[in-house]
Design a protein around this nucleic acid. Structure first.
Lengths: 249, 249
DNA sequence: TAGTGGTCTAGACCACAGG
DNA sequence: CTGTGGTCTAGACCACTAC
């Protein structure tokens, strides 16, 4: 039949917009699944898939017999393989944007050199960008690449597309990453770019990305506006089967 | 129709066993979905749901046109399973401590009620603690439990040991959790407790914990001093820690 | 080209929450 | 009791991979 491609994403994006833009506030009930089916002329499959997506993003909660309700209004970046801000934004139905502030080759500071596992003062390529979601400032991004990798960036317009896509196209295969998350106060540069007061709390994500062989190919330092974006993490413990000793009590 | 209850769990359990017990080794192709449908006399729905579960556990990878393959035979061990601050501190060689500030029963605010999936104004047990690492303030912790769970805390001295251990001893089996990380400025209460200025950036971790059956048993709101503690995350492209029912892989 | 997984349709029954 | 979300059935088309 119709088979609109990725229809569930459209539905999820619609609901996400309703939530983040304030039409649906925390604690408010979402439309029923039946209502969504009608509104989108879809069957329950895609609708339920969309709801599942929102659930894993921590935006809504649902349960048998109960109406689904809004839990949180800030969309989350889930911690899976997603490395690309653009990719993530588009998944969440937001239009990503960017303003490149700087692309330069310069010697690595000692901390950066250590993180990239190259000799001190080796040349690295630094990219500094302001990232936007639907035109609003959301994050200040500072990326550093060893020259061998970064040269693919130097002759590339960082505003023309995803840097990750570019690297993949150039055969740089990122397969593992580590992230360290904490909070910092906005520097005056951050503050000016993001449009907040000096010292405002920002979510800092420092990332190191590696090839399959374990060679570091990127270190980044991202400063997120917490009102616009945050991170979600899901963890499981043990397997459901063994010793599910219920409250014998 | 048939409507075997939770049939997808049976299928997932079967595959999980095959993988963890060695019948299916890393890199080996799983049975095709069609084969599983036949073998379990099920339709594709439950089979796909089971595969999705294994994907979120990081056990398998799948993709359009490709056979699904076994990625890993260890179900997501990552230290993210750690719920306990004490446990985590000790792992990092630090002596954990705590000062309990408050243990009360009170009606749930709407956001808390929604997160716990209970009716608004239902009674919840609130625990507020200052957490220490090597005697230094490190985090302000606010835990909320539905009464049915929290009553095990009311008659328990939170300074005498781990709340999680207590819950486990009482038969409350926490098996899954979601965390949302972002940054906030210290409230004056936070600031006084942690010994920093009002508005200082703190790392906020909001957690929801569930039983194996998916019943929420805890919501927490932890505010970390970023100079003392932060979060590290390792992800692999293919499938790491988290959940996400997005399109395969 | 054949087979696979990704997605959608269009029904159905059930358990549970709420009035 | 009605309405809701949770789960299952039984089809279908498509895009992609591997042959």
């Amino acid at each position: 039949m119709a088979a609109r491609p990725q229809y569930n994403l459209e539905i999820a994006a619609y609901l996400r917009r309703e939530i983040t833009e304030g039409a649906l506030r925390t604690g408010a009930p979402l439309p029923t699944e039946a209502e969504l089916c009608r509104r989108f002329k879809a069957s329950r499959g895609p609708v339920r898939q969309a709801m599942a997506t929102l659930r894993t993003e921590g935006l809504v909660s649902s349960g048998r017999g109960r109406r689904s309700v809004v839990l949180d209004r800030v969309p989350s970046q889930s911690f899976d393989g997603v490395l690309s801000f653009s990719e993530w934004s588009r998944c969440t139905g937001v239009t990503p944007g960017q303003k490149t502030l700087l692309v330069v080759k310069r010697p690595a500071a000692t901390a950066v050199a250590a993180a990239l596992e190259i000799p001190p003062d080796s040349p690295v390529v630094l990219v500094k960008r302001l990232r936007l979601m639907d035109g609003q400032p959301a994050m200040v991004e500072r990326l550093r690449y060893p020259l061998e990798v970064g040269r693919h960036i130097l002759d590339f317009d960082p505003d023309s597309g995803s840097i990750y896509q570019r690297l993949i196209d150039c055969g740089v295969n990122i397969s593992r990453a580590t992230r360290v998350l904490d909070a910092i106060g906005a520097s005056s540069e951050d503050a000016a770019l993001l449009g907040v007061a000096d010292g405002s709390p920002l979510l800092r994500v420092r990332r190191r990305a590696f090839t399959g062989e374990g060679v570091p190919v990127e270190v980044s330092d991202d400063h997120y506006l917490p009102a616009i974006a945050n991170f979600t993490l899901n963890s499981t413990r043990g397997t459901p089967t063994p010793l599910t000793m219920r409250s014998g009590e």
